[in-house]
Amino acid sequence: MTKFYSMNKPLLSVVVTVYNEEENIQPLLKATYEALEGIDYELILVEDGATDGTVAEVKKYANERTKLIIFNKNYGQTTALAAGIDMAIGTYIATMDGDLQNDPTDIPTMLQKAMDEDWDVVAGRRANRKDGFVLRKIPSKIANWVIRNTTKVYLNDYGCTLRVYKAEIAQGMGLYGELHRFIPVLAKEQGARMTEMDVKHHPRIHGESKYGLSRTFKVMADLILMLFFQKYFQRPIHLFGGIGLIAFLVGVVINFYLLILKLIGEDIWGRPIMILGFILVLGGIQFITTGIIAEIIVRTYFESQDKKTYTVRSVFEGKAVKSEV
Rank of each mutant, 00 (worst) to 15 (best):
L223N: 08
I224K: 12
I224P: 00
L225E: 13
L225S: 13
M226E: 13
M226I: 11
L227G: 09
L227H: 11
Q230N: 11
K231H: 15
F233I: 11
Q234E: 13
R235I: 06
I237A: 06
I237D: 07
H238A: 10
H238M: 09
L239Y: 14
L239E: 08
I243R: 09
G244E: 08
I246A: 14
I246D: 14
A247T: 13
L249C: 08
F256K: 10
F256W: 13
L258K: 13
I260Q: 06
L261E: 14
L261S: 14
L263F: 15
D267Q: 08
D267H: 09
I268E: 07
W269V: 13
G270Y: 11
G270E: 00
R271Y: 13
R271V: 02
P272R: 03
P272S: 02
P272G: 03
I275L: 14
I275S: 15
G277K: 05
G277C: 04
V281Y: 09
V281D: 09
L282K: 05
G284R: 05
I285K: 05
Q286V: 08
Q286G: 01
I288D: 07
T289M: 00
G291P: 05
G291Q: 00
I292R: 05
I292H: 03
E295F: 03
I297A: 12
R299M: 03
T300H: 07
Y301M: 01
F302P: 00
F302D: 01
E303T: 05
E303I: 06
D306Y: 12
K307N: 03
K308L: 05
T311A: 03
V312I: 14
V315H: 08
E317I: 08
K319W: 12
V321C: 06
V321P: 09
S323I: 11
S323H: 12
